[in-house]
Amino acid sequence: MIPFKKKFTILISISALSICLFAESLPHGYKEIKLGMSLEETKETLVKNPEFGYHGDRDVSLIPHSSKTLIETDAERGMGSDFLTRCWFQFSFDELYIITINVNPEKMDYYSIFKKLTEKYGEPTSFNPQSATWKDDEVTMSLEKPLTLKYIDNKIFDQTQNYSNIQASPTEITQEMFLDEL
């Protein structure tokens, strides 16, 4: 007869293993927008999906003296989603490598998204009061407070980090573009 403590340990081990075995692999993007897509593919897909609030080439910015491009959308402006606000799609050498999606905190909450992501993808790789991050060899997905989802192509991100040691945030990029237009 197996002692209770040993049975409990075996049960916990089997439960943990089943969670690992049945957790889905990390997504490579949100809905039809996938990391690695070209700028043109992404624009075509955004046009077909009004949820993001994409308004055409006026939402696309080329970063001067760089191989980087940024699409910024505003789902609150026009016929976008009730759940999304602003979204950014960052490209390096015409490949989508970061998707940043801000979720409307009036329609959704951090805990609900965290709970769903944990159910689907298992426990986060790292967790702190500001964010939860899931990571595999290809993708890093993070949920950041107040309510932002990020999908990062690890390979392209690492290449851009090696290309330039400082990665500008979407806010820094749009600020620089604004200043360049003065």
Rank of each mutant, 00 (worst) to 15 (best):
S38P: 02
P129A: 07
N162T: 04
W134Q: 01
S13H: 03
T85W: 02
S92H: 07
S169E: 05
T174P: 00
N154K: 13
G80R: 08
K6D: 06
S81T: 05
D153V: 01
N162P: 01
T174K: 08
W88R: 11
I173T: 14
M79I: 04
L147H: 00
K31M: 07
F114W: 09
S61P: 05
K34Y: 12
C20M: 15
D74Q: 11
E106R: 12
S142A: 07
N49A: 00
F157P: 06
D180S: 11
P170M: 11
P129Q: 13
E106L: 09
S61Q: 06
E72G: 12
D59F: 10
T45V: 05
I12C: 12
L21H: 08
D136K: 11
V103Q: 03
P129H: 15
T9Q: 15
F52L: 04
T118S: 09
G122E: 11
V47W: 04
I10E: 10
S126W: 10
N102D: 05
R77I: 06
P64E: 07
N128L: 03
Y54D: 04
L70H: 10
T69I: 03
Y30Q: 05
Q90K: 07
F91E: 00
E119N: 07
T45F: 00
Q161K: 15
K6L: 15
Q167V: 13
E95M: 09
I2D: 09
M108R: 08
F8T: 13
H65D: 14
F114G: 02
T160H: 08
E138D: 09
Q167K: 07
L84H: 05
D109W: 00
S81D: 05
R77V: 10
Q159K: 11
L46V: 00
S13C: 10
E95K: 15
T160E: 14
I101H: 00
K34G: 08
A16G: 09
E123Q: 06
